[in-house]
Amino acid sequence: VGEWSCVRCTFLNPAGQRQCSICEAPR
């Protein structure tokens, strides 16, 4: 899977990211 949706702000982050780029919530 290439990306994941943040549970807090729904931003689509790259699969390699451990936390959201926008709101910094953990994956």
Rank of each mutant, 00 (worst) to 15 (best):
V1F: 13
V1L: 07
V1G: 05
V1R: 05
V1D: 04
V1A: 05
V1T: 03
V1S: 10
V1I: 15
V1C: 08
V1M: 14
V1W: 06
V1E: 11
V1Y: 15
V1K: 14
V1N: 05
V1H: 02
G2N: 13
G2F: 11
G2A: 10
G2R: 12
G2T: 15
G2W: 01
G2K: 13
G2H: 08
G2V: 12
G2I: 14
G2L: 03
G2Q: 10
G2Y: 13
G2S: 07
G2D: 12
G2E: 15
G2M: 15
G2P: 07
G2C: 13
E3C: 07
E3V: 05
E3G: 02
E3N: 10
E3M: 04
E3P: 04
E3D: 09
E3Y: 13
E3Q: 07
E3K: 02
E3W: 07
E3T: 06
E3R: 01
E3H: 04
E3I: 05
E3L: 02
E3S: 03
E3A: 01
E3F: 13
W4K: 08
W4S: 13
W4D: 15
W4H: 13
W4I: 13
W4A: 07
W4P: 15
W4R: 09
W4V: 09
W4N: 14
W4M: 15
W4F: 14
W4T: 15
W4Q: 05
W4E: 14
W4C: 08
W4Y: 15
W4G: 14
W4L: 09
S5G: 06
S5T: 10
S5N: 11
S5K: 12
S5I: 03
S5L: 05
S5V: 09
S5Q: 13
S5C: 01
S5H: 08
S5E: 05
S5Y: 06
S5A: 06
S5P: 06
S5D: 03
S5M: 06
S5F: 04
S5R: 09
S5W: 04
C6F: 00
C6G: 00
C6L: 01
C6S: 00
C6N: 09
C6D: 04
C6V: 01
C6Q: 09
C6P: 03
C6Y: 07
C6A: 02
C6R: 01
C6H: 03
C6W: 00
C6T: 00
C6E: 01
C6M: 02
C6K: 03
C6I: 00
V7I: 13
R8S: 01
R8G: 07
C9Q: 01
C9L: 02
C9N: 01
T10L: 05
T10F: 03
T10I: 08
T10W: 10
F11K: 13
F11R: 12
F11L: 09
F11A: 15
F11S: 15
F11E: 03
L12I: 03
L12A: 15
L12D: 08
L12R: 04
L12F: 06
L12E: 12
L12T: 12
N13K: 03
N13S: 09
N13L: 04
N13V: 11
P14Q: 10
P14H: 06
P14S: 12
P14D: 14
P14R: 03
P14G: 08
P14V: 04
P14N: 06
P14C: 04
P14E: 07
P14A: 05
P14W: 02
P14L: 05
P14K: 05
P14F: 03
P14T: 05
P14M: 14
A15I: 03
A15R: 09
A15P: 10
A15N: 11
A15M: 15
A15Q: 02
A15V: 04
A15W: 02
A15H: 00
A15L: 12
A15S: 11
A15K: 09
A15T: 13
A15F: 15
A15G: 08
A15Y: 08
A15D: 11
A15E: 07
A15C: 05
G16N: 11
G16Q: 05
G16R: 02
G16S: 09
G16T: 09
G16L: 07
G16I: 09
G16V: 08
G16W: 02
G16D: 11
G16K: 07
G16E: 10
G16M: 14
G16F: 04
G16A: 08
G16P: 12
G16Y: 01
G16C: 03
G16H: 00
Q17A: 15
Q17N: 06
Q17P: 10
Q17C: 04
Q17R: 03
Q17Y: 05
Q17G: 11
Q17T: 09
Q17M: 14
Q17S: 11
Q17D: 15
Q17V: 13
Q17I: 10
Q17L: 08
Q17W: 08
Q17K: 06
Q17E: 09
R18C: 05
R18G: 08
R18L: 08
R18E: 09
R18A: 11
R18T: 12
R18W: 06
R18H: 12
R18K: 13
R18N: 02
R18S: 13
R18V: 08
R18Y: 02
R18Q: 12
R18F: 07
R18M: 15
R18D: 07
R18P: 10
R18I: 10
Q19D: 04
Q19L: 03
Q19T: 07
Q19C: 05
Q19H: 01
Q19A: 01
Q19P: 03
Q19V: 02
Q19W: 04
Q19G: 04
Q19Y: 01
Q19E: 04
Q19N: 05
Q19M: 14
Q19R: 02
Q19K: 04
Q19S: 02
Q19F: 07
C20P: 01
C20G: 00
C20D: 00
C20T: 01
C20R: 00
C20A: 00
C20F: 00
C20S: 00
C20K: 03
C20E: 00
C20L: 00
C20H: 00
C20V: 00
C20W: 00
C20Q: 00
C20M: 02
C20N: 01
S21E: 04
S21C: 04
S21H: 11
S21W: 05
S21F: 06
S21T: 11
S21A: 06
S21N: 08
S21K: 02
S21G: 04
S21M: 04
S21V: 03
S21Q: 12
S21I: 01
S21Y: 13
S21L: 08
S21D: 03
S21P: 14
S21R: 06
I22T: 13
I22K: 15
I22D: 14
I22Y: 11
I22F: 10
I22M: 08
I22G: 15
I22N: 14
I22A: 13
I22P: 04
I22C: 14
I22W: 09
I22V: 10
I22H: 15
I22L: 05
I22R: 14
I22Q: 14
I22S: 15
I22E: 14
C23R: 02
C23D: 00
C23S: 01
C23T: 03
C23Q: 02
C23K: 00
C23W: 01
C23A: 01
C23I: 00
C23G: 02
C23P: 02
C23Y: 00
C23L: 01
C23H: 05
C23V: 01
C23M: 03
C23E: 02
E24G: 10
E24Q: 11
E24V: 09
E24H: 15
E24R: 09
E24P: 14
E24L: 11
E24F: 11
E24M: 13
E24C: 13
E24D: 12
E24Y: 12
E24I: 10
E24S: 12
E24N: 05
E24K: 09
E24W: 06
E24A: 12
E24T: 15
A25P: 11
A25E: 10
A25Y: 07
A25M: 03
A25L: 05
A25R: 10
A25W: 06
A25C: 08
A25G: 11
A25V: 07
A25S: 06
A25Q: 12
A25D: 13
A25H: 12
A25F: 01
A25N: 10
A25T: 07
A25K: 09
P26S: 07
P26M: 06
P26G: 08
P26N: 07
P26D: 08
P26C: 06
P26V: 08
P26W: 06
P26Q: 09
P26Y: 06
P26L: 06
P26T: 10
P26R: 11
P26E: 11
P26A: 10
P26H: 13
P26F: 10
P26K: 11
R27Q: 14
R27H: 13
R27N: 07
R27A: 07
R27C: 11
R27S: 14
R27M: 11
R27L: 10
R27G: 12
R27P: 15
R27V: 12
R27T: 09
R27W: 12
R27K: 12
R27Y: 07
R27E: 14
R27D: 14
